[in-house]
């Protein structure tokens, strides 16, 4: 069996720098599929790759995004209002023709409605490499967990600051690709700082898995990304990017320009870390 695209990308990142001490972190932008428009979304995905993103998360809109803050809520509602469906999202993923791995991020119900087996097959065929489900903690549904495990899609697991030490090992069981650490309690959305105990939390996860650990939730600026990159293997930026794309609603292309500047600054930030060596 050939190496999974996500694992291959991590290996390439590791091979880049001079040894693990100087290893850079990965940049993982999140974009809501079809936002602000399908065409702009495809342009933004390509732009993310060109600007130096290592993976990209593509959000499938859901009517009741209970883990998302106002920014992503607005973007998914806008996408739904334009008639974005699961099938259309997979088309967009295929049309984008990216060279970097794509992780589909959504809530469970749209996947159930599409049909789990059919979704896994079609998402893979469209070029997706991973699946991240917000309301699907480890142990919540063994049938769906087994179906994803048997598919080519890596199941990205979320770990929270509240995940107990007793639960951690179970919570990462069956995870592939990387672990997504939710850097703080709360919903998605920009915050002014990075939690002071981020390093401690990431080390707690490293104790139970050899998978890379990415952090997200509330990271919006290059300075925050640099701070997170010092302790984690990857940094997820979502709401800030979605906001940037919205910025250009009046002028065609203006939002993309703002997003491109942000992506380039973030890509530079994750590459300039003064590295904390993983234990």
């Amino acid at each position: 069996m050939s190496e999974h695209p996500i694992a291959r990308r991590w290996r390439a990142i590791r091979a880049e720098g001079g040894g693990r001490e100087r290893r850079r972190a990965a940049l993982i932008p999140y974009l809501t599929a079809g936002y602000p428009t399908p065409a702009t979304c495809i342009a933004a995905l390509r732009l993310a790759e060109a600007a130096g993103a290592d993976f990209v998360e593509v959000g499938v809109p859901f009517s009741d995004p209970l883990a998302d803050g106002p920014t992503i809520q607005r973007s998914t509602q806008a996408a739904l209002a334009q008639g974005i469906t699961v099938a259309r999202v997979l088309e967009l993923v295929g049309e984008a023709q990216l060279g970097i791995p794509i992780v589909i991020m959504t809530y469970l119900n749209p996947v159930l409605a599409y049909g789990v087996g059919r979704f896994l097959a079609d998402a893979h065929a469209a070029g997706a490499s991973g699946l991240l489900l917000t309301d699907f903690p480890a142990g919540s549904d063994s049938a769906v967990e087994e179906a994803v495990a048997a598919s080519p899609l890596a199941l990205i697991r979320l770990i929270a600051p509240t995940t107990s030490d007793a639960r951690l090992a179970q919570a990462v069981a069956g995870a592939r690709g990387f672990i997504y650490f939710i850097s703080r309690l709360g919903v998605t959305g920009a915050r002014p700082d990075v939690p002071p105990d981020l390093g401690v939390q990431v080390r707690r996860i490293r104790a139970v898995t050899s998978l890379p650990v990415a952090v997200g939730f509330g990271i919006s600026t290059p300075a925050q990304a640099a701070a997170a990159a010092r302790v984690a293997d990857g940094v997820v930026v979502g709401s800030a990017l979605v906001d940037a794309l919205r910025g250009g609603a009046g002028e065609p292309g203006a939002g993309l320009n703002v997003a491109e500047r942000l992506l380039r600054d973030l890509a530079a930030a994750v590459r300039a870390r003064g590295n904390e060596v993983p234990a």
Binding site: T134, P137, S140, D141, T162, S164, I182
Partner: peptide
């Protein structure tokens, strides 16, 4: 039934 929630809430449910 089940527990289809963000991981953040699992500790509180337990």
């Amino acid at each position: 039934g089940g527990r289809y929630v963000p991981e953040t809430l699992m500790a509180a449910l337990e």
